[in-house]
Amino acid sequence: MAKKFLFVNRKAPYGTIYALESLEVVLISAAFEQVVSLVFMDDGVYELTRGQKTDAIGMKNFSPTYSALGDYEIKNIYIEKESLEARGLTLDDLQHLVWEDEDDDWAEKDSIHLVSSKELASIMADQEVIITF
């Protein structure tokens, strides 16, 4: 039985451990063959920023792991538009995440969808399990 799981990421990547431990849950959930979507909103949009360098704070840079989400059949990654704009960011500041469509000769397709807060509300209403980090 597959359920629709939505993981909502709201925290910056390194100030707390929520982002890292969220990613660990997301990767496990994929192994259960559920329908998994992700949201990045509030400071969570920083989790996907390009070019993270963590040497100076002595922490592991786990951001390259996000590029593997496509291999886990995670095709829907929603970015809240208002959160991005409030922080002076655009999609160009974020990693370009893709998945490969086996029904379309393994064409690479965008996983990232920019959505408004209003659109996000209806996406959330459509889910069966929502876990917020």
Partner: peptide
């Protein structure tokens, strides 16, 4: 996995 199973 126990968390995901609980969600299911």
């Amino acid at each position: 996995g126990q968390l995901i199973e609980a969600g299911i």
